[in-house]
Computed example of a mutant assay.
Amino acid sequence: MAKSETHYFYVLECKDGSYYGGYTTDVTRREAEHNAGIRCKYTRNRRPVRVIHSECFETRSEATKAESAFKKLVRKEKDTYLEKNKE
């Protein structure tokens, strides 16, 4: 039987104050990859980055839908979303 994974939508705050939303199954590993400049052009010149938000989902589809919805928001809406969903 296949191993069940948790899927995450996460938000990084970059050195320049911008946000980056992404999908992963391991938030800690993905943050380290961003800070090492691996697999993401957007954050490569905006390091260091730090995870400021993450949500877990049962399926990849749910997590990528949350990521897509976040990316469609304007900055003020992203700020409101993050404030309302503080951990």
Rank of each mutant, 00 (worst) to 15 (best):
A2F: 08
A2Y: 06
K3F: 03
S4F: 05
T6N: 13
H7V: 13
H7I: 13
Y8P: 13
Y10V: 09
Y10W: 09
Y10L: 10
V11K: 06
L12S: 10
E13G: 02
E13S: 11
C14G: 00
C14F: 05
K15S: 14
D16I: 04
D16H: 06
D16C: 07
G17W: 05
S18T: 15
S18G: 06
S18K: 12
Y20Q: 11
G21I: 00
G21N: 04
G21K: 01
G22R: 05
G22P: 06
Y23P: 04
T24E: 07
T25N: 15
T25W: 01
D26A: 12
D26M: 04
V27Q: 02
T28A: 14
T28F: 07
R29A: 13
R30I: 10
R30P: 07
E31A: 13
A32L: 11
A32N: 11
E33N: 14
H34P: 08
H34A: 06
G37A: 06
R39E: 10
C40E: 04
K41P: 00
Y42A: 03
Y42T: 04
Y42Q: 04
T43E: 02
T43Y: 02
R46S: 03
R46Q: 08
R46Y: 00
R47H: 04
R47E: 02
R47N: 03
R47D: 02
P48K: 05
P48R: 05
V49S: 12
V49G: 02
V51R: 13
V51A: 08
H53M: 02
H53S: 10
S54Y: 15
S54P: 00
S54V: 01
T59G: 05
T59I: 11
R60P: 01
S61A: 14
E62I: 00
A63P: 08
A63R: 07
T64W: 08
K65T: 12
A66N: 09
A66P: 04
E67R: 11
E67I: 06
E67M: 08
S68G: 13
S68A: 15
A69K: 13
A69Y: 04
F70N: 07
K71P: 01
K72I: 01
L73K: 15
L73N: 08
V74M: 11
E77T: 03
E77S: 12
K78A: 09
K78M: 15
K78W: 05
K78F: 07
D79H: 12
T80K: 14
T80N: 09
Y81N: 05
L82T: 10
L82R: 10
E83Q: 14
E83C: 03
K84I: 00
K84W: 03
N85Y: 02
K86N: 11
K86T: 09
E87I: 05
